[in-house]
Every structure is written in structure tokens, then in C-alpha cells.
Design a protein around this nucleic acid. Structure first.
Lengths: 311, 311
DNA sequence: GCAATCCACAACAATCAGTTGTTCACTAAG
DNA sequence: CTTAGTGAACAACTGATTGTTGTGGATTGC
């Protein structure tokens, strides 16, 4: 199926006749006739009934028309997503289930007119390079990895402190606890699949392990959060860390338990990073939105790696 | 933008290298190279970084990939919508705001796996012809127009009786009434734009006018239901008929009033029509669903044109 | 009945997309 | 350091596609 043919089909459907559609498209009537004939041949159905005073949609044509319009819309959006200059705001997040995605959903609800592309880059180094080159407009990150300070031309603002909670199945030893301390977690297996080694996310958990002697397994393939929740629910010996409940639908029927962690509460600090010279108008809107919806940070009784504290 | 190029792009992104993608698509590596080069030229950005051990997505390529996948999905659906034999179930409804649309939304919620195409044909004659030819699978209609009985090979079942209510703006003379009788409406202007003359819908209101002496203006261009509601809200001398509240969002801030009509209540009878020999598997599912969700009909104190009563 | 309108078919020209053959760049092993 | 191996790009060629002009047939309206 050819997009030009689809565009021609919509033009004919709107014009009601081949000749006018041809004029609209700046081609000859014969070319329109050929394109429609080819499209009808590839689809295997007749799209128009040809009459002396124009062309009328068949039932199949009427059914195809909304799909054709949708196809052109999607093609337009696809092209716009990489159009240099006026493309959608490109924001890098940590993972689709993280609190950062929740922030971006909130921004999209508040400004549905702003086109967004949410991406997931590998680590903060990739993100900073992409921000400096203009390939992306902003990134949610813990502001620095150990030994890698953020360059001068990158601005950052702390937007969210995400307290980690323990997630267990109903048969886990700690399933009934109202809250647990980090010390109590020593010896329990904590499973965090999908954390790539070398990222600042992995560094965060490395520090947590080093400081409190926890057992965190970051290995194993990541089959998605649904598979993770299934495994946690069914395996009494496993637990995992997870942030605050987002507005995502919480899967029912698993018997999963969320248990606050205290003394101290591990907190993952999310900052927004962007290039000081980035002219994208939606970037300012995003920053304003985040500033308006972000509250202050209470750091008493919490733990965060020292390298992750923004300057 | 060429759909084949987009398909090639996705194949390369998944294969990680041009050669394997070429094998998957059964073309040569050179053809893949050309297609990607052309796509990159039309988009104006580089999509892959070519390395010695394969091709890797650039940031732009990563941003483009989900749009490309969506584009292929929509193209697939568009083609399927007219595929002879295994196309989606095609159901004809009266209008997008009618109770019939509510029934179809309910069906879609109950069976989201069934592909649907909802259409709006002109009148029952068109619908019956389409049903007999197999161009559509079912139609919601008042079963017959005057003098035009439904042919023997068309089956029908009454699925919904829709009582009409009066819709007025806040300044209308009847705005404060708890209910009105048809006799009370004599002399008031009732506006029903978008009812094409010659349809059974128009015949329904013609009968209503003839029997009770109402003033119904079915003329005027139809600018959509939003424009209709705006006009009704702002024009004290105008009112309109509307069915039961559907699950659509009821526009707030208009000050619109819904007033039940009694003595008798005009009822629009909706039946589902289909061809006895139609083999579409989803048609049986739709009939079962409608039979399960449809209640009996209480016809006391209601009015319906005699020709609209099913046999 | 005749002009006007509209679409389809035919012939031709230009362009395009795919193939084969080959080169270039990089990596890894000896 | 050399050499074999892998992967992508360039060049030349060919068949197919797509557009054009020219023309014919069918229907509508005066």
C-alpha cells in the first residue's frame, strides 16, 4: 500500500471527483485514475463508483476512509517526530513504570496540545551527550554518577524524591510487617531485574548494598514489569524495591504487599537536566509545570548516595 | 515517505544490521542500504550509525521507531478493514450520538478483541441493499419505512426502545417543567438538524408532526452535535428532541434542561437487521451480546409509528 | 440531439528500485 | 604487522513503475 495513493484516495473522497482531486494534488486526472485503480487492485475492492458527474464512495470506500485519514495523521506525526527544528519535545526517562513517567503523564494531561516523545536512554553519560548535541531536550536523572560531574552548560533542578518501598508476595517472611528497617532486610534476597550495569541506577543500588550489607540481585533478563510482579507474587524468598504508587492501574489478584522502608528510608533523587541554550518553547513550559507541581524535599530520616545530591 | 522504507527501517532496527534485515525481507543488502538512505534523506536526519559490526539506532532513530511501528500497525488495520472474507464486523448506526452508538460501545467494551467498523449509511433502503450484498454485516434501524417491507432474507430483532426527551436552554418557556405532554409542545419550535429527508428517521418525525400537530424544523445544515447544543442553550425559542442520556460526557456549563415527554412518550424503536446467511463469526457474538443486555419493552403510554413496529 | 463533463485506455518518456559486481572501513586472529 | 572476515556503500545496468499527452466512451443537461 502506497501512502501517496492513500493521500490521493482521501483527496478524491473529499473532492467528490477525480478531476478536482487531480487539480488539488497538482497532477493530471489520468494519474489520479491510475493511482486509485492501483490502490483498488492491491486492496482487492472497489473504492469508488464512477458516475458521469463524479466519483462516489462505495461502502468499502466509506469503511476505508477513516482508516486512510488515520494513516495520514500517523505518517505526519512520524515525520514530525524527527523534523529538525520543530519536532516534539524529547524527554528521556529512567523506565516506563518509574515516577518520572508519572510526572510526564501529568504534564501531558496539563498540556495536551504539546507534542511529546518520551524515550529511554542508557545512562546519564549518554543523556548528557544527547542533551549537549540537542538530540534530546531534557532528561530525568540522578544528577551525576560517581566521578562524573555534570558539565557547566547543563542545567538541572531537583524535581522529585522517590522513597523506595519493599514489594513482596503474600507468602514472604516480611509480608505482614507494617514497615521494615534497612537492617531487617539484611539476608533477604532482593531482586531488581532490568538494571543495566554501568548506569547511575546500578551505582545507586551498589552504594545501598555497600553501606547496609543488603543482597541485591540486579542480574537476569528483564521480561517487563508484569513478569516481575508475577514472580515476586509467587516467590516467597524474593522481594523487590519499588517507588511510590503511580497512577498506573495496580494489578489486582496478586496479593502483593507494599511495605514502607525506614531507618533510613532509601530515596532516589530525580532531577531534570537540560541544556542552558535549548530554545525549544515546550521546554520552558515543562520546567514551569514541574516547578508548580513539585513540593519541597524533607531529607530527615532518608538515605541518598552523596554523589547524587545536586550542587 | 514510503511504507516499504518504514518497514525496512523497523526490520533493520530489530535485526541490528542491514544484511540480516535484507535476508528477512528477501532482498539484497544493497536494496536495504538504498531504502534506508532514501528514508534518511526524506526525513532529513540520520537514523543509524553504521559500525563495522552492524547498524545502531541514533537518538533520532530511537524516537522514530515507535512512530514507525505505529504506522505499520495502522496500515495493517487499514488494509484489513476492506479485506474480503476476514474483515472487521461492519455495523451501520443512525448517528454517532444515538443510543445505538452506546450499544456498540458496550459491545466493544465487552469484546475488545473483536475488530469493529461503525458506519453511518443514508437510509434503511441503502442499509438493506448493503446487508444483502454482504457489504455490511448489520444495521441498527427502525425495521421498515412506510410502504417498504423488509425482505424475507433479512432477519431483525428489536434491541432498544429509545424514549425521546425534550432538550431546552435555560431561558426556554418550558425550561422549568418537570415533564411536558406532546399537546403542550404544539406551537413551540422544535429543531432537528441533520435529519436527511427521505430517510426513515425523517418519516418518524413526519408522522409525529402529522399526528400531534407539532412544529418540527428538520432543515438547516448540521454542524455537529456540539453546535446544536450551543444553539439550543442560547436560543429561548428553540428546543430539540434527544434520546436517553448515553454514557457520553454531558457538556457542562450550558444550562441545558432535559424534560421527559409524556402522554404519550414518543419512542424510537431500534432493531438490529442482518442477513440470515451472513457467516461472520462476530455477528453471532454481537447478537448474543445484545440479547443478553436488552430488556423487555413496555409500550404502555408510548407512541411509535405503526410502520416501525417489527413483524 | 448536441455540447459539456468526467473517467478510462493507450502510447510514450522519465524516473525509480532492485540486482550484480566491487570497493572501502573496521575488527579480530595469527 | 599482516591477513582473513564481516558489514555497509558505491557504480553500472535493467526492468518496472509512474507520470505525461492524446483520445475515446458514457452520462447528464439544455
Amino acid at each position: 500500500m502506497d501512502l501517496e495513493a492513500v493521500r490521493t484516495f482521501v483527496a478524491v473522497a473529499e473532492a467528490g471527483q477525480f478531476q478536482k482531486a487531480a487539480a488539488d494534488l497538482s497532477i493530471t486526472q489520468q494519474a489520479v485514475s491510475k493511482r486509485i485503480a492501483t490502490l483498488e487492485r492491491t486492496l482487492g475492492v472497489r473504492l469508488f463508483t464512477r458516475a458521469a458527474r463524479g466519483a462516489e464512495l462505495t461502502i468499502d470506500g466509506q469503511a476505508f476512509l477513516p482508516h486512510a485519514r488515520e494513516l495520514l495523521r500517523v505518517a505526519e506525526r512520524a515525520g514530525a517526530s524527527v523534523r529538525p527544528g520543530r519536532r516534539p519535545l524529547r524527554v528521556d526517562v529512567l523506565a516506563s513504570r518509574s515516577a518520572q513517567s508519572g510526572l510526564m503523564r501529568g504534564f501531558h494531561r496539563a498540556h495536551p496540545e504539546i507534542d511529546l516523545d518520551v524515550m529511554m536512554l542508557f545512562d546519564i553519560e549518554t543523556a548528557v551527550t544527547a542533551i549537549r548535541s540537542g538530540a534530546i531536550d531534557a532528561s530525568f536523572r540522578a544528577v551525576a554518577a560517581p566521578g562524573r560531574p555534570v558539565p557547566e552548560d547543563i542545567a538541572s533542578v531537583r524535581v522529585l524524591d522517590e522513597p523506595l518501598q519493599l514489594l513482596t508476595g503474600p507468602a514472604h517472611a516480611l509480608a505482614g510487617a507494617q514497615s521494615v528497617t534497612l537492617a531487617q532486610l539484611v539476608g533477604h534476597r532482593i531482586w531488581m531485574p532490568g538494571i543495566a550495569p554501568g548506569t547511575e541506577w546500578a551505582a545507586y543500588y551498589d552504594d545501598l548494598v555497600a553501606e547496609f550489607g543488603l543482597t541485591i540481585e540486579a542480574t537476569g533478563p528483564n521480561f517487563g514489569s508484569d513478569a516481575l510482579l508475577d514472580t515476586i507474587a509467587d516467590t516467597p524468598a524474593l522481594a523487590t524495591f519499588m517507588g511510590e504508587p503511580t497512577r498506573l492501574v495496580w494489578p489486582a489478584g496478586h496479593g502483593l504487599r507494599r511495605i514502607p522502608v525506614t531507618d533510613p528510608t532509601p530515596v532516589y533523587p530525580h532531577s531534570l537536566l537540560w541544556h542552558r541554550d535549548n530554545p525549544h518553547p515546550a521546554l520552558a513550559t515543562l520546567r514551569t509545570h514541574l516547578a508548580a507541581t513539585t513540593t519541597g524535599h524533607d531529607t530527615t530520616g532518608t538515605w541518598t548516595p552523596s554523589w547524587a545530591i545536586p550542587r
